[in-house]
Design a protein around this nucleic acid. Sequence first.
DNA 1: CAAACCTTGACACAAGTGTGTCAGGGTTCC
DNA 2: GGAACCCTGACACACTTGTGTCAAGGTTTG
Lengths: 122, 122
Amino acid sequence: MDALTIHEAAETTGWSPRMLRYVERVGLVEPARSPSGYRLYGPAELQRLRTLRELLEAHDIGLSDLAFASRLRRDPVLREATGAWLEAKAERPDDVPAADWMRWEQDKHQRLLDAAALTATH
Amino acid sequence: MDALTIHEAAETTGWSPRMLRYVERVGLVEPARSPSGYRLYGPAELQRLRTLRELLEAHDIGLSDLAFASRLRRDPVLREATGAWLEAKAERPDDVPAADWMRWEQDKHQRLLDAAALTATH
DNA sequence: CAAACCTTGACACAAGTGTGTCAGGGTTCC
DNA sequence: GGAACCCTGACACACTTGTGTCAAGGTTTG
């Protein structure tokens, strides 16, 4: 099979072995393990590691930022709470007629329910 | 008018004056200024500061997390880039028939265009 | 005009992030 | 069976985040 060890994966992705372990602990790329516990990086993981590098460098963000984004998308309550707070900041009432606003609120609640249902279906 | 100085605002919101300046520098609550440069906190800012405290404590997140969430919602390119990366992680192909997938991709591009148009309209 | 505010800037410090290196001990492979 | 890998855990360091405190100087107000 075509799975690389951590040093090999480091070579082809540009990360250091140390950082591959760190990326794993942050929860962003978790490779399979061999019976004896060796990390095994398959083509999918290698690709994710390469795009991860590009993503971080292109936008000057950190692993923790991405971890938070991941949390945002997994936790609809958090997403709506932060969304609501930030939304108020950008709010310019004349931009949004009352009917649109109410429809938006309604949609938001629906989205919240949808998301909750999704995460509930394991 | 009913605008409070930084110490008064600190009293009624539970933040310290030091932290109110920090919150401002992070870009989350930016009070008006008096002609001589004093910060003036109106009812809107006070309310935002209180809900900000609740939000941070309720979800155990930091100011920087919220700042990143703000950046996410202002920058559609960043949003789609992070979204695409994280999406791949949760991906389970059997959950998503090809037709749905293509529709989703199409919607995503439309959303990206919409968002870009929105931010472009100043 | 002096007390009691306000401003910015700096020093300080704990905790978290990102990264290297090294130690002690298991695994693979020629 | 020894070289060359792998594992976890720890020490170390720089930088960021979140806070407090203090200094030097402007503002407001009794």
